[in-house]
Amino acid sequence: MNDPLMPAAYAVLNTDAVKRNVSVVRRHAPGAKIMAVIKANGYGHGLQRIAEVLADVDAFAVARGDEGIRLRKAGFEQPATVLEGFRNRDELDLFLSYGLDTVVHSFPQLDILESCPETGRLGVWLKVDTGMNRLGFRPADFSHAHQRLRECRVVKGPIRFMTHLANADDKTDVKTLRQIALFNETLAGCPGERSIANSAGILGWKDALTDWVRPGVMLYGISPFPSQTGSQIGLQPVMGLYSQLIAVKPAYPGETVGYSGTWRCPEPTRLGVIAIGYGDGYPRYARNGTPVLVNGRRVPLIGRVSMDMITVDLASQPDAKPGDPVTLWNDELPVEEIAQCADTIPYTLVCGITQRVQIIEREFEPATCES
Rank of each mutant, 00 (worst) to 15 (best):
G201V: 13
Q340M: 12
G131A: 07
A59N: 06
W329K: 14
V104M: 05
A208H: 11
M132V: 04
S316W: 04
G254L: 09
L349M: 13
C351W: 14
R26T: 13
T163V: 04
A80M: 06
N330F: 10
V273C: 03
A29S: 10
F364K: 15
M6S: 08
L165T: 07
H146R: 10
V53A: 08
F364A: 14
M307H: 10
A8G: 15
H164Q: 14
T344W: 05
T269W: 00
G323H: 06
Y285E: 09
A63C: 01
E332H: 15
P158T: 08
A342W: 10
P79R: 14
N88K: 10
E337T: 15
I50L: 08
F76G: 06
C369N: 12
E361V: 11
H164T: 09
C341P: 12
D101P: 10
C265E: 07
P322R: 14
L110K: 06
T256C: 11
A9I: 07
G157D: 03
Q109W: 06
A17N: 11
F142L: 02
P366S: 14
E67I: 07
H164C: 06
T172V: 05
H105T: 11
D324N: 15
M1P: 09
V18T: 03
D211I: 04
A11C: 02
K249Y: 14
N198F: 06
N133F: 02
E118P: 03
C265P: 09
P117D: 14
D173I: 05
H45F: 01
L293I: 00
P266I: 11
Q48V: 15
